[in-house]
Amino acid sequence: MNKNSFVLGLKAGLSIAIGYFPVALTFGLLAKTSGLSIWEATAMSIFVYAGASQYMSLTLISKGVDPILIVLNTFVLNIRHFLMTAALNEKMQSEKRWIKGIYAFGITDESFSVLATRKEEKIGTSFAFGVALIAYSSWVVFTAVGHVIGANLPQFLQAAMSIALYAMFVGLLVPSMRGNRKVVMLALIAAVINGFFYWTGILSTGWSILVATLASSIFVEIIYVRHENRKRISEKLKGV
C-alpha cells in the first residue's frame, strides 16, 4: 500500500464526504421516522452503501412493498454501475482480483466521477482506497448521527448543502471541458438525452442515466472515428 497516494486519495475524496454529509444525515433521520432502529438504518449504509437505493427502499418499506420488489428495484437503479466500473477498469492500475473486489464496493456515482476524471494515465490502488474510504466513512457515520440526533440541519444550511454533490460534478467536468470539444459534446449530448427521458417520463432515473451515457459515448465515438479516418485518407491523398 502506497501511503502517500492513499493520503492523496483521502484528500481527493473529501468533497464527496462533504456532499454525503447532508444526504446521509437526512437518510438517518428518515429511516428513524420510517421505524428503523439505529442498527437497521446504519447497517443499510454499511452493507448497501447506495444513496438513491436506500432512499427508495425507505419509501417502499413504509408502503409495505414486497421485499423481492425492493431488491429488484435496487438492482435496476444500480445497473448503470456495470458501465461505470467497466470504464473505470480501463484506468485502474493492474491489481489482484480480490483487492479490486474490495475497493469495487466503494464505487458510487461520486467516487467513480472523482477517479475516472483524473488526469494521470493510470490510477493506483491506494489512491482508489483513499477516495473510497473517506466517502464511505462519511456516509456510514452521518447515517448514524442523523438517526441519533433525529433532527436536521437548519433549513438554510440543509438547502444550501443539497447542491454539494452537483457542484462537485460540475467542478470535475468543467476543467476537462477546457479546450476539449469531445468532452463538451459527450457531456452535452448525455445531458440533453437524460433531460428528454426525465421530462417525458419514458425511463426511470437509473435507466435514463445509463441509456443517456451509453448513447452519447457511442455516438461521439462514431463521429470521432469517422473524422479521424477522413483526416487520414485526406493526408494520404496529399502525400501522393
Binding site: 476524471t117 438547502a159 467536468l173 448525455a190 438525452i193 421530462w199 472515428v225
Partner: peptide
C-alpha cells in the same frame, strides 16, 4: 479498440447525465 474508445468516453457523458437535469431540482 472500439469498446475501449467508448468506455473512455463514459466518465464525461456520465457527468453530463448526473448533473442535468437533477441539479435544477435540488430543492
Amino acid at each position: 479498440p472500439v469498446v475501449s474508445g467508448v468506455l473512455r468516453n463514459i466518465p464525461y457523458a456520465v457527468l453530463g447525465a448526473l448533473i442535468f437535469p437533477a441539479i435544477l431540482y435540488v430543492q
